[in-house]
Write a protein that binds this DNA or RNA. Sequence first.
RNA 1: GGCCCUAUCGUCUAACGGUUAGGACGGAGCCUUCUCAAGGCUUAAAUCAGAGUUCGAUUCUCUGUAGGGUCACCA
Length: 439
Amino acid sequence: MNQTVTRFAPSPTGLLHAGNYRTAVFAYLFAKHTGGKFIVRIEDTDAARSKPEYEANILETLEWLNLPADALYRQSEHRIRHRELLEKLVAENKAYVSKETPKNPGDREEVIRFRNPGGDYTFVDVIHGEIKTNVDDLGDFIIARSFDEPVFHFAVVVDDADEGVTHIIRGGDHISNTARQMLIRSALGFAEPLYAHLPLIMDNQHKKLSKRYGAKALTEYRDMGILPEALLNYLASLGWNPGDDREYLSREDLSEAFDLSRVQKGSAIFDEVKLLSVNQHWMRELSDDDFAKHLDVGRTTSHMIIQLLKERAKSFKEAREMLSRELKCLFEEPVLDRDQLVAKEPKDRPDMTKSALESLSEALKALSGGVSPEVVKDSIMPLADAEEAKGKGGRGAVLWPLRYALSGQERSPDPFTLISILGIKESLSRIEKAIAILS
RNA sequence: GGCCCUAUCGUCUAACGGUUAGGACGGAGCCUUCUCAAGGCUUAAAUCAGAGUUCGAUUCUCUGUAGGGUCACCA
């Protein structure tokens, strides 16, 4: 029968954070799961604070997350309708124009107040069950600053009804707004929608995520190289689970499995460490081509280098940093330090390190062209094992100088992989230079 | 402070009223290993407290406690 309609209704008064978009994710997934529509409505009734660049950022982020809206509205486009209904309420004596003494700059001398009948009200929240409130101390609250300037509570009710929203999925911080919106709704004679108030997302101080306390704009996550799949997956897992042990769900998996009945009641803390680990998972799912595209560095990156990055990096930002730090030696010749080059065991025997490098060099000369790490390993390990058998310094007596000669780094990928990536010729040249230092 | 919401490992969470309370991230240890990373194995870690209902409560009820949200001519 009637199709579900959900909406995401952000106000363009700042950059939005994970908490905001988590509600968008849930509203979107619920709509998709039920074969319904997902509406985005920009709540720009506060002309003074609304900014076009914030609206642009919201739309850009939604596109990046790939949460396409079936319809896009701006609340300001509905002024005429709002005015019409405001006048209707006043004509019916359900609201009235009230003389005021302005308290703050910008306050009007005349506003429109709702005639509050008072009493107890109960509504059924899809997630929390029955929630009851007493509406007496709300008084005759303001619903518009003038006939052309409705206030949030009024505009939301009208727009949700006009746009046919069936499920109002929003943050739990709106629970206390629900009663007054129900009052307006029923005065207007609109049908009652279903409410689903999501648990809030908290920062590590256990406070509601907010711009003020440093919550990141979602675009910052994009800029640090988090994949939209990862953010979507992680956001969906905050306050919801698929009912089985799956941790990594694609957009399709999520739309398929998402249901309001498994939404958590308690708030959740946003954990960037876990987000990073989810991101690593999705980075590894990428093809080499897509990985290189996201990596977005000038140089070409081979399959093997991408493998190294997939093993290590949890974000593309981190991957780029690795390319200019521990993996730098793949692209430029390292500067070697003599003391570092000499094997730790046996101690202070540069002569032995030198002869080890010389035998390695000989062994490598037997190879040519493109060699896999396995081939390199096969030709080199016997030398290392022989050293170990002699009991002088173990494999490290051979492998450490080798790896250091190639990388100039205390930490790096293993020497077999390095040789395979660098090629025999370049590797031999680096080993020669290391031998020269020891001579 | 009033009103409202919530309560399982550090974090995200699972568990028809009956489980050795499970998984994931993070931590620790071991294996692998010249280093780093990855991988494999193992491990520590939780039902907020107190009553009640019940043969039996993580689960239902009440009280307390704690945390959070909200109290605008913002949304």
